[in-house]
Design a binder for these strands. Structure first.
Lengths: 332, 332
DNA sequence: CTGAAAGCGCTTACAG
DNA sequence: CTGAAAGCGCTTACAG
């Protein structure tokens, strides 16, 4: 591989001039520029990024901390991150943490060894062992840490869950089951709050046996739904905190001989691409997944460059998508 | 951030000794080592990877070229890559190409600027504008380029598709529709060959109107299925080259008032996590998605280190998964 | 086992 | 507008 030295010799100029031709061409005379460009072409010179990055003290790389890359919602978020990163001149390093703190720490530490210029955290933890590190550019997206001033991009999950619960109430449901995610998650907490808000607002008592805990996997949805069906008075509707669990719950309902939505209404959250193709098509909340990524990346870009992001806490819009998995309560 | 210089001053040794303590501790006396380690702890020194990578001329990073990160099969492959990469000391850069050659070139070029040590290509193109580059460590996985000696890890798609077609034939189907992927893909070509092999073997004429082209998306499955249903004698079974298209085809069948599998059998390929939860659950071919990734990464590791991989062309096992979307031909 | 020194390939004040 | 020079933070022969 040709180096800047080779080019400078062939062009008969200094390495500084070659460097300038590449990075600030307007600081080089047209004549010199042409000579240098010809030499670059001739040698097929490509600047060594390892050297450039080392010299400029930045990696032009960011790392994204994601609990599970194979989750269809997160993979869309990452697609958004990648697109914006690319257009801003950043490469994106994949930090699939499997939800493990140690792996989060490993990846987040890369910012301290200059391997990466910033971090996008998609989970609600501070990714450092020793607490928040104000010198590490960090943006939080999707599931966000509360009570810090880390820039974030998220959904108003309280309102969204409330809207969904109200949708069920408007269909005549009073006895509404809930399948949550892990209770440590901010997203789960907020959606739980929204569910309770809706019940309170409609003077419906909160029944703890109606609330079951899942882990956002399909199989946890079937398990939790089965628990719900065993209640003395089983719910006539179930709100699941994501679509995967709703798919699991629908399967369990069918297995128990229940028709969805005639015997039981089931709703999800996320509007993953399969939601529309479930049987019956799933009522859910759609989230602009890619936009979480694009927005988080452009915020991180600001943070890296020492600019305060415009909206430190950005809320993205959601939409209630009513399909066929929810219907009127016919048990009344 | 503390540098190696700071540590060496505090420890009262040369920077070379600090460096050795970190990389070849057995070449340092126990006594010195302890002093140095104390100084490292005291200063909270972490080696600057940008400097180390520059100096050692390797980035300890690989890039994965993927047509679409949001595809559930690819995202599992990437999970496998990431796991093995991590354990081998490599970081993985995400090259979401959207199937665009220019983006492939951009990412693959990173190996020429030392930004990356190797490439895993999940699509069947040579990722360089100017043809194959023997100096660039490259491994091909999933959809592989033919007629080169690029190390590859793939499925025997011919046999797998043949098995699936034979399964349909064994159920009494003669008039079997096919929904393919883009014809430029090696995977598509191989599965098409397997389909034809099975028909020939059973002395069933190949009917070109039974073969429709999709693009591996759900919506292309609905479209292609609809075309098939318009045939003079519509097929009694449809083999779709992936699960997404099968899901689309099932939806279209239902829309047309057909019962799956009583009126029409529909089969997919991949066994994505939703296949089992379709209505009816999908008959499909399961592939060890993560293993494509782990295997490809360990092969790339060999290539990077100048070792010939053990099996230059690795074939992974598949399994025919019979669920409820395929059944006996009742039109006979 | 340890240190002094060279050097990886760039960029960027600085001087002219 | 251009060049000489310093230096980014490491690693690694080389010599002792």
């Amino acid at each position: 591989m040709a180096t800047i030295r080779d080019v400078s010799k062939i062009a008969g100029v200094s390495v500084a001039t070659v460097s300038r031709t590449l990075s600030k061409p307007d600081k080089v005379s047209a004549k010199t520029r042409k000579i240098v460009e010809a030499a670059i072409k001739k040698t097929n010179y490509k600047p060594d990024m390892l050297a450039r990055n080392f010299r400029t003290r930045k990696s032009s790389t960011i790392v994204v901390l994601v609990p599970d890359i194979a989750n269809p919602f997160f993979s869309r978020v990452i697609r958004g991150i990648e697109q914006t990163a690319q257009s801003l001149g950043y490469a994106v390093l994949l930090g699939d943490t499997q939800g493990l703190r140690t792996r989060e720490y490993t990846y987040a530490n890369m910012v301290r060894t200059s391997q990466t210029d910033g971090i996008i955290q998609l989970d609600c933890h501070i990714p450092f062992e020793d607490g928040i590190d104000t010198s590490a550019p960090l943006v939080n997206a999707c599931d966000c840490i509360r009570g810090t001033d880390i820039p974030s991009v998220e959904l108003d999950n309280v309102t969204a869950a409330q809207k969904m619960t109200e949708h069920l109430i408007s269909l005549g449901h009073i006895n509404i089951g809930l399948i949550t995610g892990p209770l440590s998650s901010t997203v789960t907490k907020d959606r739980l709050k929204g569910y309770k808000n809706a019940l309170k607002k409609n003077a419906i008592a909160i029944n703890d046996t109606n609330i079951t805990v899942g882990d956002y996997s399909i199989s946890s949805g079937t398990l939790a739904a089965n628990d719900l069906f065993k209640n003395k008075t089983p719910p006539s509707a179930i709100f699941c905190m994501n679509d995967e669990m709703a798919i699991g719950a629908i399967q369990q309902a069918k297995k128990n001989g229940l028709n969805v939505p005639n015997d039981i209404s089931i709703a999800g959250f996320d509007d993953i691409s399969f939601a529309e193709f479930c049987d019956p098509p799933l009522t859910t909340i759609s989230q602009p997944a890619e936009e979480f990524g694009t927005k988080a990346m452009s915020m991180l870009y600001d943070v890296i460059n020492g600019n305060e992001p415009e909206n430190k806490n950005t809320y993205l819009p959601f939409e209630l998508i009513i399909r066929d998995s929810t219907g009127p309560n016919k048990r009344i």
